[in-house]
Design a protein around this nucleic acid. Structure first.
Lengths: 376, 376
DNA sequence: TACCATACCGGGAACGTTCCCGCTTGCCAT
DNA sequence: ATGGCAAGCGGGAACGTTCCCGGTATGGTA
C-alpha cells in the first residue's frame, strides 16, 4: 500500500555549545571544584559540633534518647555543610540496602511499562529504590541480571520470566539465599513461589463466551508459545469455553503464530479464509495479530463484526484508536505491579515464616464494536 | 458511539495455594534456613584457605601479582561457599557505586519506555546498574527523586524534566556535587548542561514543508505547553516553515491544547471546522490529538488527506495501525537513551575537565497516507 | 658473598554508617 | 544517706571491601 518515505535520515550529529556558553560554564565549574573538596559525612558534623558520631547518627534518625535542641543543632549543621547521607554505608552496616530488583523481558509494548509504573509507584511509597534490568527474552541475560541484583544486595526481586527460560535453577538460588522472589505475569511451573498473575483462563473464557452470545459458532484462535503459562492458560480458556458452549473444537481453526505480530496475524487470517468453511470470529492471544487480521478483512471487504467478529487480548492503547474499535482483555498492569510489591513487602516483613502466596487478578473484558453485533 | 461495556469488573482476589503445595513449600523452606546461616564473605574464603583477605580480594579481581594457581583455588572456594560479592561494601570502599540514576516524568506512552530501553541496554553494557524513578510530572517528587539518587551515591543522573518544573536549583545542586547530569528530551533553559534532544524544530519544519509540497496552504497547529523546550521548538519550526514557504501565519489556526489527548484534539478540530475558512491541513504536536481530529473528520465525511491532510508527532506505534496511517515524526527514543548514556560516560571518565555537550538528533519524518495526496 | 630486583602475599587502615555497651548527671523514693 | 532509674551522650566495634605499605622468599648479577 502506502510506503512510508523518509525525508530526513541523517544520523546523530554532535554540536558543542557556542563559545559564550562555554565561558560561562568554566566559571561555574571552578566554583564547583573549590567547594566540593570533600563530601561532608556524619563525622564532619560531629567534629564541627564537638559531638560523638553516634550522637549525630541518632540525632539524624530522630532517636528518642537525644535532646530536641541537640537534634536541631545537628540538623542545622547538616544543611549548612550540605550533608548527604550515604545510603551505601548505611546499607552495609544495617545489612539491607533498601533496593528492590526488577527484571522484565523487555521495556516495550504497553504492558510491561504499565506494570513498572505500578511497581515504581508502590515501591517508592514503601521507601524502596527500584533497580531495573531487562533480559531481552534471553535466559543467559536473565541469569546475569539476577546475579547482578544479588550482588547489589537487593532485598527482593520481582521478575517476569523470559520466553527462553526452561530451567529454574537461578530462581531457586535466589530463594535459597533467603531473598524474596515474586513473579508477575509470566511465571515458571514451580511450587513454593509467590506470584501475581492475571486470570488468563477466565479472560479467554469470557471473550469466547461473549462471542458465542453474539451468535458466533466457528471461533478461530491465534495462540503464542505454549510453554509460557499465559499462553497456555488463554488457550485452555478458549477450549473450555467452547466445550461449555457445546461447540466443537476444530484444530483447523487454531494457529500457533511464530510471533505475536501484525504480519503473523494477517497471514493467519489469510489461511483461515482459504478454509472450506471459514470462521465467523477470530480471537487472538494478543492485540497486534488481531489488527493484522482486521486489515486483511477490510481489504477483502469482509465486514467486521457482521461477517467475522474480532477480539484481541491485552487492551493495548491502540485498540480504542482503530476502527472498528477492538474488543480486548484488560491485563491490569498497574494493579499487577502494585500487587507484586505488596507481596514482596509481606515476605520481607516476616522473612522467617512466609508462605508463598499467589494473587490472581480478575481480567476485565472490554467489549467494543469489533465484536458487538446486536447493538442494543 | 459504542460504549465499552464491562463483563468482569471484580477487584483483585487473593487465593492461597492448595494444601499439598503448602506442605511442599514447608519442606523447601526448612532446607533453606539451615543452609543460609550466613552469607559467605571474602573473609570466609580467606580463613578457609589460610590466606589473607587482601590476597583473596586481589585474586578475585584477577590482579597480576597473584599466582595463577592461588587464583584458581580462591575461585573454586568461592563457588563452593556460594560467595556473592557485596556491591555495597565495594562501592563504599572504592568511592563509587556503579549505579546510574534515571528520572522520567512517567512510565507510559511509548516514548519514555523506548528511551529507557536504550538507557538500560547501554548502561548495562558499560557495567552500570540503573536505578529508576518517576516524577509524575511533579517538581516536588522530582526534587525528592534527585535527593534519593544522590543519597544512593549514583555516579550520574539522566533526567527528563517534569512539566511543572520552573526553577532549577535541584539540578544545580547535582552539578555542584560533581555528579554528571544529563538531560534528555525535556531540558531546562540552563547554560552549562549536557543534554541530548531531538531537533524538534527541524522535525516540525520538515512536516510543514511536506504539507506545503502536498498543496496545503492553510495549515493549523495543535501545540502543548510552551514552557517546555520541545513544544516551543516545534511551534517555532511550524512558524519558520510557514515563513519560508511565504505563507501567512494565522493565529486562528493555532490551538494550545489543555492536554495532548485525543479528546482535546477532537475539540480543537471541531473549532477549526467552524472557522469561516477552515484549514486544509492540521499538524499536531503529538499523535493522540491528531487521532481525535481524524475521528471528527471521518464522522463528518471529510476526506483525509484530500480535503484535510493530517500529521502528528512522536510516531507512536498506533500511527501505523489506524487508517489512514498517520504521518508523524520519529523521535528516536532508543538512540536518545543510548546517546544520553554515552554522554554520561564521557563526563564520568574525565570528571575533572568535562565541557557540557549537547547532542541533537535528526528527526525522521514518516510520511504516510494521512498527508500524502499525490500518490505517485 | 653481598646485593638487588622481582614475584607473591600479609597486615591493617579506611570508606560512612549503625548499634551495643557503658558512663555521667539529675531526680525521686526508700 | 543510699539506692535505683531514666535521660542523654561518648567510645568503639562491626559491616565487607579495597588499597597502600610493607614483608619474605627466590633468583640473578656483580
Amino acid at each position: 500500500m502506502y510506503e512510508a518515505s523518509t525525508l530526513e535520515a541523517n544520523s546523530a550529529s554532535n554540536c558543542l555549545l557556542p563559545s559564550p556558553h562555554r565561558a560561562e560554564f568554566r566559571l561555574v565549574f571552578l566554583k564547583t571544584t573549590t567547594l566540593a573538596t570533600k563530601q561532608a559525612s556524619i563525622t564532619t558534623i560531629a567534629t564541627h559540633l564537638g559531638l560523638a558520631v553516634s550522637t549525630v547518627s541518632r540525632a539524624l534518625s530522630d532517636h528518642a534518647n537525644i535532646r530536641e535542641d541537640t537534634k536541631e543543632r545537628v540538623r542545622q549543621m547538616a544543611i549548612k555543610l550540605n550533608y548527604q547521607p550515604n545510603h551505601l554505608a548505611a546499607g552495609l552496616r544495617k545489612g539491607h540496602s533498601g533496593i528492590l530488583g526488577v527484571v522484565v523481558p523487555h521495556i516495550s509494548g504497553s504492558f510491561f511499562p504499565t506494570v513498572m509504573h505500578g511497581i515504581e509507584k508502590m515501591a517508592s511509597k514503601a521507601g524502596f529504590h527500584v533497580m531495573l534490568c531487562q533480559s531481552n527474552e534471553d535466559v543467559k541475560q536473565e541469569r546475569a541480571n539476577i546475579k547482578m541484583l544479588l550482588n547489589a544486595q537487593v532485598e527482593g526481586i520481582l521478575i517476569s520470566m523470559s520466553s527462553t527460560t526452561y530451567d529454574f535453577q537461578h530462581f531457586e538460588k535466589v530463594q535459597s539465599q533467603g531473598v524474596p522472589l515474586v513473579f508477575f505475569d509470566r511465571m515458571p511451573d514451580m511450587p513454593s513461589t509467590s506470584a501475581v498473575v492475571l486470570d488468563d483462563h477466565q479472560g479467554a473464557f469470557g471473550v469466547v463466551k461473549h462471542l458465542v452470545e453474539q451468535g458466533c459458532k466457528r471461533i478461530a484462535f491465534f495462540s503464542g508459545p505454549q510453554h509460557l503459562n499465559i499462553n497456555k492458560n488463554r488457550f485452555e480458556g478458549y477450549v473450555d469455553a467452547l466445550e461449555s458452549s457445546s461447540l466443537d473444537f476444530d484444530p483447523q481453526l487454531v494457529f500457533q503464530l511464530p510471533d505475536l505480530s501484525k504480519a503473523a496475524g494477517a497471514e493467519g487470517m489469510n489461511l483461515l479464509l482459504q478454509l472450506a468453511s471459514p470462521p465467523d470470529a477470530v480471537f487472538s492471544s494478543y492485540d497486534l495479530p488481531a489488527v493484522g487480521a482486521l486489515e486483511v478483512l477490510q481489504e477483502r471487504n469482509i465486514r467486521v463484526p457482521q461477517d467475522i467478529a474480532l477480539s484481541g487480548f491485552s487492551n493495548e492503547p491502540f485498540t480504542t484508536l482503530i476502527s472498528p474499535r477492538l474488543t480486548s482483555v484488560e491485563q491490569r498492569g498497574e494493579l499487577m505491579g502494585e500487587a507484586a510489591v505488596r507481596l514482596f513487602l509481606q515476605m520481607h516483613k516476616r522473612t522467617d515464616n512466609y508462605s508463598p502466596q499467589r494473587i490472581m487478578l480478575k481480567p476485565q473484558i472490554e467489549v467494543r464494536s469489533s465484536s458487538l453485533r446486536n447493538i442494543v
